[in-house]
Design a protein around this nucleic acid. Structure first.
Length: 613
RNA sequence: GGCUUUGUAGCUCAACUGGAUAGAGCACUUGACUACGAAUCAAGAGGUUGCAGGUUCGAAUCCUGCCAAGGUCACCA
């Protein structure tokens, strides 16, 4: 049994014996003792004042005396206000360290449970951007965390490969692309398709502007405008209607979508060609980011799913049909609205697809837990979806989870494609790696290394800076992205943690073979040494917490704290020329374990460690 | 307007889920390389936790009401 459990159980036992009152072990409130006081763990004694009918200080004394008397590993106590500070023996810490040093891995063995995690989910008409990067890092990291807890994880990407958006790119390319390929244009292929999407918007805007001046445009403006509305404001709001009802290119794009749905050979082959370009580009981006998927779902395969489930639900009276033939669900008793699930022409909407896809995936993989990594703008959608699945009595309904994250803002405001402020994922990676290269050359720590390995280190450092910068922020919160800070290499950053690891490797290399078996004879543990072991001790707890809340940011601050303690330890103590052989053996062991933990946790965050930097 | 999320140092974020004097980094001011890597360490300054009430031995955290910002309320995805 580990020390925190001993303290909790001992306290519960003490309360029972001393005050004749039963309490739940988990209700014992303990935390790490603050630095300014003596001790390792503190028990909060206020909750016992009622049952003991004594002052907190007196209860603290009595509990402290009881615990220290009963358990050898607790060697001292003091009471300050309502807090009982307990000191754990050096022997305990030292033995704990030797146990951890024996471990081959911190990963838990497979226990049979499965979890599916969907993330990234791009559209094929545009390249990946900063928003996707946050999504991907959260999804990837959550996958790694659940794997570490012994789950079988299925990493899934849904590709939104159909719809009006990709038709716009296709149409523009067909109209003015003259059969050009991305290779001929010298542009990364997903960016190339994105370029035609932008070209379409230009064509459309030009057409729209011209139309606004025509008699037809003016008469609609004069008839439909609200009182006192400016012409520019009116036409801004009218854009969608214009696209759907008046636009030539809009009609062409819609016609193309219909042809696509009719399986028209020419349209389908153009669609396959251009999506192929996009996938090629995405693959490169994913590879550079260091991530991969186990399975891809294409919306073109799944967009018709779900209708049969709606029929089934209709017969069970979970849904109802309106006079016009459209199908709805009434969620008012769950404090939501009525929601459409089938159009009056019988075609599906977004919700229908998601209902069908959930069932489809469950049949594919059989995971009771399915996680959707999607930005918080879709909170309501998922709330509705999960409620519907519950009412359909899906066996996995309670295992559905929306990993909702806040969107990223820039220091200058929101990212908007129309204003050209979208931060592109490929550009971003190039920039951070370049910044890492410039910095590494300045520091000169890589001299003598061959060029290919140097490049690998630049990549690891740059990506660490970028990934850590994003992942250290609580997933649920909206965050502000400052490009300059994202390439910072000092302070609370990925490279700071990498540097701790590199220092460890350097020490271990210089030390050579050291017999660590005498480490447990070392008795005078210093403050930073104890602190470091105390942090190692918390690894499982932090992983558990990140998993439960689907938030890797806990692990990010955990490794930052640990790296920081290591740097201080490294500064305060001599390792290779320690004051005794026991001290040296102990510190080498501490270095090894710290290095292993740091590497393990950073891997859960999707960040690689360099051996030098 | 309904529902919902957020508001903490000049800036970017923490605070282990109700515990002790609210902590880090950046930026700013100092100090430490003839020490195992200075991408480091040590120190200084910086706060009415949006505001006002309430619950509690104890509130940044829970409740209520305001204020501000975001999201969402499509037969879009």
């Amino acid at each position: 049994m580990n020390i925190t459990e001993i303290i909790k159980e001992g306290t519960a036992l003490a309360v029972k014996e001393l005050y004749n009152h039963e309490i739940n072990v988990n209700d014992v409130n303990i935390n790490s003792t603050r630095k300014e006081f003596d001790g390792d763990y503190s028990v909060v004694v206020f909750p016992f004042t009622k049952v003991a009918r004594k002052k907190p200080e007196q209860i603290g004394e009595e509990l402290g005396k009881y615990l220290v008397g009963k358990y050898d590993d607790l060697i001292n106590y003091n009471v300050i206000k309502g807090f009982l500070n307990l000191e754990v023996s050096n022997k305990y810490w030292n033995q704990y360290l030797s146990q951890v040093a024996e471990k081959e891995t911190f990963k838990k063995p497979f226990h049979g449970e499965k979890i599916m995690i969907e993330f990234s989910s791009p559209n094929t008409n545009k390249p990946l951007h900063l928003g996707h990067v946050r999504n991907i890092l959260l999804g990837w990291s959550s996958s790694k965390i659940y794997e570490a807890l012994g789950y079988e994880v299925q990493k899934v990407q849904v590709i939104n490969d159909r719809g009006i958006a990709i038709c716009k790119s296709m149409l523009a390319w067909q109209m003015i692309g003259k059969g050009e390929t991305p290779k001929e244009a010298g542009i990364k292929s997903d960016h190339y398709v994105g370029k035609w999407y932008v070209e379409f918007e230009k064509l459309f805007q030009a057409e729209y502007q011209t139309w606004q001046k025509t008699d037809a445009g003016q008469s609609i403006f004069l008839n439909d405008k609200k009182d006192g509305q400016e012409e520019a404001a009116f036409f801004k709001g009218f854009k969608n209607t214009y696209f759907n009802e008046h636009s030539k290119v809009g009609a062409d794009a819609k016609a193309m979508l219909l042809k696509w749905e009719d399986n028209d050979d020419d349209v389908r082959s153009l669609w396959r060609k251009m999506n192929g370009w996009v996938y090629e580009g995405f693959d490169t981006t994913y590879r550079n980011l260091g991530i991969e998927f186990d399975k891809l779902y294409y919306e073109s395969d799944t967009y018709l799913l779900g209708k049969d489930i709606i029929e089934d639900g209709l017969s069970k009276e979970i849904f109802y049909k309106k006079d016009d033939g459209s199908v709805w669900i009434d969620l008012e008793d769950a404090k939501m609205d009525h929601k459409l699930v089938l159009r009056r022409d019988g075609t599906s909407v977004y919700m229908t697809q998601d209902i069908g896809t959930a069932e489809h995936r469950f049949q594919d993989f059989g995971a009771k837990r399915m996680v959707y990594v999607v930005a918080d703008e879709q909170n309501y959608h998922f709330k509705v979806l999960f409620e519907i699945m519950r009412r359909m009595s899906a066996s996995y309904a309670d295992g559905l989870f929306h990993l909702s994250y806040g969107m990223i803002d820039l220091t200058t405001g929101k990212m908007k494609s129309r204003e050209g402020t979208i931060v592109d994922a490929d550009d971003l990676m190039t920039e951070v790696i370049e910044a890492a290269r410039v910095n590494a050359l300045e520091k000169g720590g890589l001299e003598g290394l061959e060029e290919a390995r140097k490049k690998d280190v630049y990549r690891k450092i740059g990506l660490a800076a970028l990934k850590f910068f994003i992942i250290k922020v609580n997933a649920k919160k909206r965050m502000i992205f400052n490009p300059e800070e994202s390439v910072d290499l000092q302070g609370n950053t990925g490279p700071y943690i990498q540097y701790a690891y590199v220092r460890i490797q350097s020490v271990l290399k210089k030390a050579g073979e050291v017999d660590t078996s005498i480490a447990t004879k070392y008795e005078n543990l210093g403050v930073t040494e104890k602190e470091l072991i105390g942090q190692i001790y918390r690894l499982d707890e932090i992983i558990r917490m990140s998993a439960d809340q689907f938030d890797p940011s806990f692990l990010a601050s955990y490794c930052y704290e640990m790296a920081k303690t290591y740097h201080r330890f490294n500064h305060d103590h001599r390792i290779i020329k320690a004051e005794s052989e026991e001290a040296k053996a102990f510190r080498i062991r501490l270095c090894k374990v710290t290095g292993k933990v740091l590497q393990f946790v950073m891997e859960l965050l999707g960040i690689e460690m360099p051996e030098r930097m």
